[in-house]
Structure formats: structure tokens, C-alpha cells
Design a protein around this nucleic acid. Sequence first.
DNA 1: GATTTATATAGTACAAAGTACGATAATGAT
DNA 2: ATCATTATCGTACTTTGTACTATATAAATC
Lengths: 229, 229
Amino acid sequence: MTTPRAPRNSLTRERVIVGARALADARGLEALTIRALATHLGVKPMSIYHYVANKEQLLDALVDSVFEEFHLPQPDGEWRSELANRSRSVRDVVTQHPWALAIMETRTHPGPANLNGHEAVLEVLHRAGFTVEAAAHAYAILDAYVFGFALQDVMLRSIQLDTSAAELREEIDLRNHPRLGEMAEFYVHASSYPLDGTFELGLELALDGIGQLRTHIDTESLPSKADAE
Amino acid sequence: MTTPRAPRNSLTRERVIVGARALADARGLEALTIRALATHLGVKPMSIYHYVANKEQLLDALVDSVFEEFHLPQPDGEWRSELANRSRSVRDVVTQHPWALAIMETRTHPGPANLNGHEAVLEVLHRAGFTVEAAAHAYAILDAYVFGFALQDVMLRSIQLDTSAAELREEIDLRNHPRLGEMAEFYVHASSYPLDGTFELGLELALDGIGQLRTHIDTESLPSKADAE
DNA sequence: GATTTATATAGTACAAAGTACGATAATGAT
DNA sequence: ATCATTATCGTACTTTGTACTATATAAATC
């Protein structure tokens, strides 16, 4: 009954983080406790604290491991497609880890992958001819849209999972909410995942709008040296 | 030392919720514990459970009380200005209650104020001539942008509050992040709250884009009867 | 006014979770 | 073979939500 002590190299910081991700993915954020994580790793709770100062720091690392998954835009690529791909990647990854946004919101120390992502996006904008000010606007607007959309994806999904359609109908009272009823109807009969199309549509809008913020000098016609640092 | 029992009408559900909001506003979400709330209300912890089944339900009510604060678009107003005002209101209210987004994310039962808000927005879109499908796109895109922007507002502010500029500079390593350095510089020297302008800019973009989704029939020229249910 | 009933407030106590502190065992160094 | 280092772990304390039960107060009835 008394398990022998785990071998000396059972753990690494990496394994702790990966285990935490697995637990959160499989059983949700509220199931990610130090004790559960220890069990999952075949180890006793206090062993984890050799690799992580406290749970907050574990969550910091967890969030940054999600940022690592985002597609990094290539500085020499075409800005519009690079940003579009990064945006799609962010939405995909975030919806695959529905717990991620909740943790991101409470982080106060941006991790290296997060910072690298910012740098890469800003570099793309810079090379595309955005001034610092234009880039500030463009990035804030695009990120707001992308993370906001992912937020809605996640919230919608969690409602669907936790609350049955019948339960919802009861709570909503369709007599007083005819438009909402229409909309629900529309979504029920819509194709597989109707928000995918909506996301693309809004992404085009955002990129179109952002494009207008560029300096009107067509930087692509300039010699690349003049554009470089 | 032993306080006498609190008088019989010390509490109401309303007072519990208002007290919870005050606590969260003043000391943050993590300070909102049942015990702290009880002290704040001059009452013992278990008394709260006479008005609220559990803490989850309290959070449900808390979130819905925030939705109540959002400006309700007027069905007979001009769609663009109504939606713009609602959007500004959402951002303002959410940034005034930085804890709200975190709770919203984990709710699975939309409250009445939430539903009424949806209904009002959809009604405005309907009267403006949006088909159900167009309204679905428009609403999802606009909400993604607005909540996403508020999310960034909140995250940025919490980083600023919890992490000193010096601390940040140390963690960021500006040698490897020149663009990020430029951007930080720009924000430091920018006017009072530079994101306000960015929000308005993106809002115009979103509303412009959404406008293109309308049916091209100019519904405003139709007799209102033909447009009514 | 006295008695009964309903209910709002509260006391006690337990479980779950983070983690401080110190012990112990496994590895490498001398 | 001894020692130093350090990865793993046991114990125990604190904080939090809250189940269960008790009690006091207001309302209702006689």
C-alpha cells in the first residue's frame, strides 16, 4: 500500500507543465490542483514545488506554453496573409485550450513566448510600412477582434456543454425574446460550425481596415536596404 | 465582545449582490469570499446562504448585474449610433469592473439582463434591415471586437498595476525586442489614455464593415408598418 | 396578550486546496 | 567509505466553501 518513493528523475519543470496542460485539457481548469497534478505525474504533491515556486508561477508557465503554440508570423512574408494566419492560429489554439483565456486574464508577467509573439507581429507591421502609431492601432484592433472572437467561441461552447437545449429554452422565455428565438433557430439549422465563416468575414474586415492605416508610401517598391534597420 | 445577532431584515438578495460588487470593485475578485462579504454586510457567513444557493449562483447574479449596466440600444433609434453607444458603454462598464470578464467566462447560465441585451441589439439590427444571417455575423463580429478590446484594457491595466515599469524592462530584454521597445516608448509618451482613440477607430471600422452586410433595400424609406412584425 | 408557526440569522464542523517546514533518501564528489 | 547536494516526500497549518443544526425573532392565530 505504501508506494515506494518515485525515482530521482521523475520530474522536470517541462514535465510538470506538460502534465498540467494535459490535466486542464482533459478535466478542466478547476480540476487542475496541485494534488491532482501530482497524482497524474506519479509523484507526491510537494515534489512539484521543487520546480515551480507556487501555483501562480505554474499558471504563468502554462499560459506561455500556449503562446508558444501560436503561429509566429514570418518577417519576410506578406503582412496580410501572415497576420491572417497568426489570427487563425490564435483562435484555433485558444479554442483547443478553453481554460487558457481565463488564466491569461489574471497574468501580470508576460512570458517570453508572449513577448516574442508581439515582437514578430510588430516586425511584420513595421516592414509593411506601418508607423509606430499606425502599428499600435492596427495591432490593438486586430488582437481585440481575434481574442474577443475566441472568447465568444469558448463561452458559447461551455454554455452548450453545461446547459441542455431544453434547459436553455426554459430559462429564456421566447415570448419576450422573439429575435433571440429567430437567431437560435438560425444557428440550430445552420451548417456544422457557423462561426467559422463569421470569423473569416470579420477577419477580412479587420485586415481591410488595418490596411488603410498604412503610410501610403508603397514600401514594397523601395529597395529592401532602405527599409531595413 | 460577542456581537448580538444582526436584526431580522439586515439582508436581502439585492444587498448581498450589491455588497459583493462593492467588495470586488474595492479589493478584487480574490478578496470576494463569503466570509469577507459577510463581514462587509455586518452579518455572519452562513446568513448569506439564505439568499443565494452557493457562491456560483452569487457570481451568476453578479455578472447579470453588470449586464444591467450596459446601455440598452433603443429599437427606434438609428442602428449605427445605437450600436456605437452600446459598444462604448460595454467597454466603459467592463473596465470599471475588471473582475467581470473573468466571471463571465465561466458562466453557463445567461441571466435576464444578458438576454435582454441580446434581444435589444438583435431588434435594432432587424429593424435596420439585417437578415437573420447578416445579424448573426454582424453581432458576433461587433461583440468580439468590443469585448476583446475590453479584455485588453483590463489585462493591460492589471499588468501596469502589478508590475513596475522597471520590473517589466528587466523581464523584456529590449535588445531582442526592438519593435516592442519602440512601441512601449510610444505608449509612454502618448497622451492620457491612447487606447481610447484606438477603440473608436476600430469601432468605426467594425460598424462600417457591418453596414455592408445589410440588405441593400433601404428599409428606412419603407413605411414602418411593412417593417413591423 | 399568549401560543404557535414560519423563517432569518448564526454556530459548529468538515472537506478540499495551497503550501511552509523539515525530514529522508538518492546521487555525485572527495 | 564518507560527505555534500538535492530531489522527493510527510506532516501539518491556513483559508475557503458550505452541510447540518440550532436559535432567536417576527408573524399568525387563538
